[in-house]
């Protein structure tokens, strides 16, 4: 919770790498507190250099265990690492049980690592609405690698592909029908595919299924946020100056650390590819378009809700439920009322 706090010391603290200030700043941003906006504004010029890595996949496939291994690999490389681990908010109580740290105990005691758990707070798609702002704070605090673990939702977690530079999709054998488990856009968002729990007998089948699907889906595409819509932009034909990225399918046994080094290397290779080919800028543009748009939409939505005459709304809804009016006509009536009214404060 945010208790008596001022912008300047907080800002200086974050930039200095003070962990308490950083943790406080994240809370403010997560809560959408009034200080969050000036804070993010002041921190923004210090961002834009980190490699943002999304780790997604169905529940229980070993994402947290892999994140822990990866963080240690980066530490071996001498790089500080921040981890943001998102778990779902219960729609009934509004509470959340954030358990990803259980698998990250080995990371404790290292001042080069900062782990923060986040509840999704009602947003769907595997992240929280404030996740990208929390990432900005961590970038400004100087972390060159930021690992973001999504909620294990098992569906197309496109949200992470709009938030990270590199998306790792973690599958595990034995999730039932392999094809079922890797449906819904997973191949479009994956830059790296991992079959974890490779100690299980059906691992080879899962790897084979993924490789087949990869080869069938030609023309590498990456989802891009364009004019308010998620579009899958065909990647331009690869050339000598713009080589295509071949999505690798890696096997890991996260609990034993097996294959984690190879995953780490694949991530660093993808980072080089992004940075050298100009793909980083493309993804960065899509990320920033979304950052701007989501703010505009959030503010417009709030303003519109405030201007909706509550009594009219309730009366109209009552008529709709009695089938005296259809929802379209009710919506049009409300919208006409809005466009006639002057904006607040005018």
């Amino acid at each position: 919770m945010a208790r008596g706090m001022e912008l300047d010391p907080l800002l200086q603290g974050v930039l200095r790498g003070d962990r308490r200030a950083l943790a406080r700043a994240i809370t403010l941003v997560e809560n959408g507190a009034p200080l969050a906006t000036p804070l993010l504004r002041a921190l923004f010029p210090r961002t834009g250099r980190a490699h943002l890595i999304g780790i997604t996949g169905p529940p229980g496939t070993g994402k947290s265990t892999l994140v822990s291994g990866l963080a240690r690999a980066y530490r071996g490389q001498g790089l500080p690492v921040a981890v943001v681990a998102v778990d779902p908010t219960s729609p009934f109580s509004g509470g959340a049980l954030l358990g990803d740290r259980v698998r990250m105990g080995k990371l404790s005691g290292d001042p080069g690592i900062f782990i923060r758990s986040m509840a999704s707070r009602g947003s769907l798609g595997g992240l929280a609405a404030a996740t990208s702002d929390v990432i900005l704070v961590l970038e400004a605090a100087g972390f060159p690698r930021i690992l973001v673990e999504t909620v294990g939702v098992g569906q197309a977690e496109v949200e992470i592909a709009r938030t990270a530079h590199t998306t790792v999709v973690v599958e595990a054998p034995g999730l039932g029908d392999e094809v079922q488990a890797i449906k819904a856009g997973v191949l479009e968002i994956a830059d790296i595919l991992v079959v974890n729990k490779a100690d299980r007998p059906s691992a080879s089948r899962a790897v084979a299924a993924l490789e087949t699907m990869l080869h069938m889906g030609q023309g590498r595409a990456h989802p891009v946020w364009h004019h308010g819509q998620l579009m899958s932009l065909e990647a331009p034909a690869p050339s000598e100056t713009d080589p295509a990225w071949e999505v690798p399918v890696l096997r890991t046994i996260a609990t034993a650390g097996e294959g984690v080094e190879a995953l780490h290397r694949a991530l660093e290779r993808h980072r080089e590819w992004l940075w050298e080919t100009g793909h980083r800028e493309r993804r960065e543009q899509a990320r920033m378009a979304r950052a701007v748009e989501s703010r505009v939409l959030a503010v417009l939505g709030r303003q519109l809700r405030q201007r909706l005459p509550g009594g009219d709304l309730a009366a109209l809804v009552a008529r709709v439920s009695r089938r005296e009016l259809d929802p379209h006509t009710a919506a049009e009536t409300l919208l006409q009322g809005l466009t006639r009214e002057p904006p607040p404060g005018a």
Partner: peptide, 21 residues
């Protein structure tokens, strides 16, 4: 779990935690 159901955000760290952790 009960505290989650009461509306809190609960960070669960697991067993064998040292005071430093």
């Amino acid at each position: 779990r009960a505290l989650r159901d009461a509306g809190f955000e609960v960070i669960y760290t697991g067993i064998r935690q040292t005071p430093q952790m």
